[in-house]
Design a protein around this nucleic acid. Structure first.
Lengths: 179, 179
DNA sequence: GCGCCCATGTAAAAGGTTACATGATTAG
DNA sequence: CTAATCATGTAACCTTTTACATGGGCGC
């Protein structure tokens, strides 16, 4: 099981869909951080079906058009998806975290709360690391055409990302405290 | 030529290095967004050498240790790297943009300025897209265990990222205006 | 008539991960 | 005596990208 297969499960957890519809949803709704092509889609569906995580619900035929194979998720697929969502990915796998969050509605509020708390701590550690690195350069004020200029600006981008992530975690934790 | 090969060129543009040293630098300095392993490293070095973008500077042998092959970048390698850095990657390739920025010191200040301006516009477009999407859900205040809750929180994460990126672009543009 | 949409799928290639192999030295 | 470091490299596998194939209907 990989990100692609879990992503398909995540869509089917919301509603039954055909392969074609899943591709459309991925390439529109979550296109800013994930894309899929036919060669990942159709073999992945076959694998998920063989593993018993999804099953054919119906084959729709609309006159002249090619038949649409509508899949639905099974109970075992739901369980598999849920335990994947619950695992905190490594710090550098930001894509994976986003994909998991897309199915975070499957978790109990307190499960989601503790997951995001761990996520926040992860970002705080990375932020500390960046700040340590940049502090050793702080005195220098390098010219634009010195390598150090790029080194510093890349670290600054990292700092901005980590701060944005921490902000998001805080907002989520606040929201979840109300429940 | 792929990200891995350009990344190696980017390191050699700063100083001559052995393959082992390149791996160490990647897995420490820029580890938060890029990693490399032996099977990418050594074949890539061979390819870069055959293409004439890098060349052997020396083979250092320190008594008992294995010999170190020190590479340096060629003029044609420098040109290739520079034109790669100058191309704005697609919006979803944030990793690639970071890798390019690591060698942004190669560009003239006004070249870098216009690159970052384009980058900022890209993020503003994506941000608008996210805001449009979320506005259609705004009235709803879904329960934690409704799929819409996850949809909204994922879009919110996207908004935070885009805003952080725009902030970074603004800071860079301000810095570059001084030059 | 040309290209796009629908809807499934496959083939080939490129890119990336994990694990292994060598062999001397040093730190615990 | 075990594990780690230095330094190169290869083998096997998994993932991802690009391109192709079918075939009716629709817009220009």
């Amino acid at each position: 099981m990989n990100n692609t297969q879990y992503t398909l499960l995540g869509l089917l957890a919301r509603e039954p869909l055909s392969g074609y519809e899943m591709k459309q949803q991925i390439n529109s709704r979550i296109s800013h951080f994930y894309k899929i092509n036919n060669n990942q889609l159709y073999p992945s569906l076959s694998k998920l079906e063989k593993a018993g995580f999804i099953e054919l619900q119906a084959i729709e035929q609309e006159s002249y058009r090619p038949p649409r194979k509508i899949y639905r998720i099974t109970a075992s697929g739901m369980d598999t998806l849920k335990s994947w969502v619950q695992e905190l990915p490594e710090a550098e796998e930001s894509k994976t975290f986003l994909l998991k969050q897309y199915s975070s509605w499957l978790l109990k509020p307190d499960e989601l709360f503790s997951l995001i708390k761990k996520k926040k701590e992860q970002h705080e550690r990375t932020l500390e690391d960046y700040k340590k690195r940049i502090s050793s350069f702080e005195e220098h004020n390098p010219d634009v055409n010195h390598p150090l200029f790029s080194t510093i600006s890349v670290i600054n981008m990292g700092i901005n990302f980590e701060e944005a992530s921490i902000l998001w975690c805080d907002r989520m934790l606040q929201l979840l405290r109300k429940h």
